[in-house]
Amino acid sequence: EVPFKVVAQFPYKSDYEDDLNFEKDQEIIVTSVEDAEWYFGEYQDSNGDVIEGIFPKSFVAVQG
């Protein structure tokens, strides 16, 4: 069931425009499960802007 919160276990950096880049310990709200390997989610950056994109499930852990 979406949405749910995950926390980055590792930093994720990608050159693909659709990917969500983040640092370790970033909290991310997952709004869609793309497939067995990928989530789609969002978070607010330090400027208060909402950043969204896809990212690999293996880089995050589900909270709770």
Rank of each mutant, 00 (worst) to 15 (best):
Q63F: 11
S32Q: 10
S14R: 05
I54W: 15
K5A: 07
Q9M: 15
V30S: 00
Q9K: 14
A61D: 14
N21P: 07
K57S: 11
N21D: 05
G53S: 00
K24V: 10
D19P: 02
V2M: 08
I51Y: 14
V30C: 04
I29L: 13
K24E: 06
Q44D: 03
K5H: 08
E1F: 13
D45W: 03
K5L: 13
G48N: 05
V30A: 01
F40S: 04
F55D: 02
E42V: 09
S46A: 13
T31W: 09
Y39N: 00
I28P: 01
E52F: 13
F10W: 12
V60F: 05
P3R: 08
Q9E: 06
S14D: 02
P3M: 05
N47H: 09
I29R: 06
G64S: 12
G41V: 04
V50A: 05
Q26Y: 03
E27A: 07
Q26I: 05
I51W: 13
S14L: 00
T31V: 06
A8Q: 00
F40C: 09
S58H: 10
E34Q: 14
S32K: 14
L20P: 01
P3L: 06
D35N: 14
K57V: 07
V50D: 04
F40Y: 13
F55N: 02
S14E: 02
D49Q: 13
F22D: 00
S32M: 09
D35I: 06
V2H: 06
Y16P: 06
G41T: 03
V33K: 07
G53Q: 00
F40M: 08
W38L: 07
L20T: 01
Y39I: 00
V7M: 07
S46D: 11
L20S: 00
V50Y: 07
Y43V: 03
G48A: 03
S46P: 10
Q26H: 03
N47C: 09
E23C: 10
E17S: 10
A8V: 03
I51T: 07
D45Q: 08
G41M: 02
D25N: 10
F10K: 12
V62D: 08
F4T: 03
N47G: 07
E27K: 04
T31P: 01
I51V: 13
V6H: 00
I29D: 04
D45E: 06
V2R: 05
V30E: 01
D25T: 06
F4L: 04
W38Y: 12
F22V: 03
E37C: 15
I28M: 04
V62H: 12
D15E: 13
G53Y: 02
V50W: 13
Y39Q: 00
I28R: 01
L20D: 01
L20I: 05
I29N: 07
Y39L: 05
K13P: 03
F55H: 01
F22Y: 01
I29E: 05
I51C: 13
P11Q: 08
L20N: 00
I28Q: 00
V50S: 06
V6C: 08
D15Y: 09
V62W: 09
P11V: 05
A8R: 00
P11G: 09
K5Q: 06
A8S: 08
F22C: 04
D18H: 15
D18W: 15
Y12H: 07
E1G: 13
F55L: 02
E52L: 08
E17A: 13
F40E: 01
F55A: 00
Y16L: 11
V30F: 02
V33T: 07
E23S: 07
D15M: 11
P11D: 11
D49P: 02
E17L: 11
K13W: 13
F59K: 13
E34M: 15
P3C: 11
V30Y: 02
K24H: 04
E1L: 12
D35P: 05
F40G: 04
Y43L: 05
D19S: 15
D18I: 11
F59V: 14
V30N: 00
S46N: 10
G48M: 06
Y43G: 01
I28C: 05
P3G: 05
D45R: 07
V30M: 02
K5I: 12
D18P: 10
E17T: 11
S32C: 15
A61E: 14
G64E: 13
D19F: 14
Y12S: 03
I28T: 01
V30Q: 01
E52A: 14
V50P: 05
E52Q: 15
L20C: 04
K24C: 08
Y43M: 06
D49S: 12
Q44R: 13
D49T: 12
E42Y: 15
Q44C: 13
E37R: 07
Q9Y: 07
E27W: 08
